[in-house]
Design a protein around this nucleic acid. Structure first.
Length: 196
DNA sequence: ATCCGGATCGCCT
DNA sequence: GGCGATCCGGATG
């Protein structure tokens, strides 16, 4: 399998549920001075707008949430629990501030670089099986917050096709509000999925 | 100025 | 399965 074309911004300007589903099988690729690392997206969640209490946009437009109000196809990277970064692709269906969180990837390029960035991972599956872990493995930090996912060092590319029969949908993980909404998508039986 | 909760992870039992 | 780490954004006074 070879990395394909960079996904255009128009892809992200649609319903977040659709974007989250179709991001499965795409390649998240980051180039840094240390080299290129990438992985196939195997788990995503949708955060669908101001009416979604679990979405950061529920707080309205603030310094932190500003990227969600800009445009589809840019990165929204936030810091959590004092230690970790999480990566989202901004979606803008009908102008709604929303995003798709990438929760897990399967390493494709630069696995040795990922191992160096994740010295405590005991097995390779522990490199990228969580939203904080994959950001560490790729080297993603707040420095790319708000950056284009078409023109910059961080891009999403076409990669593999995932059939509907290989996809499972569940409630989102680790949230308090709207915890029963089925807005998490994952590739069945993929060992890099964070849970379930 | 101060307080609190959080889209997590890794280590412990 | 439980808990501590560690800090930022937002809210309140």
């Amino acid at each position: 399998m070879k990395p394909g074309r960079i996904v255009p911004a128009s892809f992200y300007a649609r319903d977040t549920e659709l974007v989250a589903r179709e991001m499965l099988g795409m390649l998240l690729q980051y180039r840094t001075e240390r080299g290129t690392a990438s992985g196939m997206i195997v788990e995503t969640e949708a955060y669908v707008g101001e009416h979604d209490a679990a979405c950061h946009a529920a707080a309205g437009l603030t310094t932190r949430t500003a990227p969600l109000y800009e445009r589809a196809g840019i990165a929204y990277v936030y810091f959590i629990y004092g230690m970790y970064w999480c990566f989202n692709a901004v979606t803008r269906p009908s102008g709604q501030p929303s995003a798709a969180l990438v929760r897990a990837i399967e390493p494709v390029e630069g696995i040795d670089l990922m191992r160096r960035r994740r010295p405590h991972a005991r097995r390779d599956r522990d490199l990228t099986n969580g939203p904080g872990k994959l950001c560490m493995a790729l080297g993603i930090t707040g420095g790319v917050n708000g950056q284009s996912l078409q023109r910059g060092s961080l891009v999403i590319r076409d990669y593999a096709a995932i059939s509907d029969s290989a996809v499972a949908v569940t409630p989102r993980i680790g949230i308090r509000h709207a915890a029963d909404w089925p807005l998490r998508w994952l590739v069945r039986d993929n060992e890099f999925v964070s849970r379930g």
